[in-house]
């Protein structure tokens, strides 16, 4: 639990750093920070239970996707602004490093394994984002329709 808390705080700072580099408008930084940290903690939790990085990335990306779409809807801005800093924590940077490391050791089987893992993680992030994006778009469209229907009656 304590471990998760420290991870949460670290991820918050990391996302804040990315927000500064990518120049997120100041009023959106708090939202971005929370989104990024939630995504990373989701990843950590699912790693603990399933120990599958791809699944972790998928769930983390789902959380980031949902939260960003909701934030974009309520703060009236493009979802990209929340998605990009949020997703960067999940991007498999250590995967790239480890692939390269095994290649240096002339261990190409391990390199292929870790490289494939990295690719799958990147794919999982993308799929997670897409699914949540699509589902939420339908959801908001339905909400709008119900609201207009409601107004008619």
């Amino acid at each position: 639990m304590l471990h998760l808390l420290t991870e949460f705080i670290l991820a918050m700072f990391a996302t804040a750093g990315f927000s500064l580099i990518f120049r997120v408008p100041i009023r959106h930084i708090p939202a971005c920070v929370i989104i990024g940290a939630c995504g990373w903690v989701t990843y950590e939790i699912s790693m603990y239970y399933y120990s599958s990085p791809a699944m972790g990335c998928f769930l983390g990306a789902c959380v980031v996707g949902i939260l960003s779409t909701v934030a974009a809807h309520h703060l009236k801005d493009a979802a990209t602004i929340f998605v990009i800093p949020g997703i960067l924590c999940l991007v498999p940077g250590s995967g790239i490093f480890n692939t390269m490391l095994s290649m240096l050791q002339d261990d190409f089987t391990a390199a292929a394994e870790v490289g494939m893992q990295t690719l799958v993680m990147a794919g999982a992030i993308a799929i997670g984002l897409m699914i949540t994006g699509a589902v939420l778009r339908v959801f908001y469209a339905l909400v709008r329709k119900t609201v207009t229907l409601w107004d008619k009656f």
């Binding site: 991870e7 670290l10 580099i21 990373w40």
Partner: peptide
């Protein structure tokens, strides 16, 4: 203009530091 260079620099340093602990 983007944020001041110093601000982004600190952002970058914080990112690197936090990730090293997360890894």
């Amino acid at each position: 203009k983007p944020y001041q260079f110093m601000v982004r620099l600190i952002g970058a340093a914080v990112v690197a530091a936090c990730f090293s602990v997360m890894f």
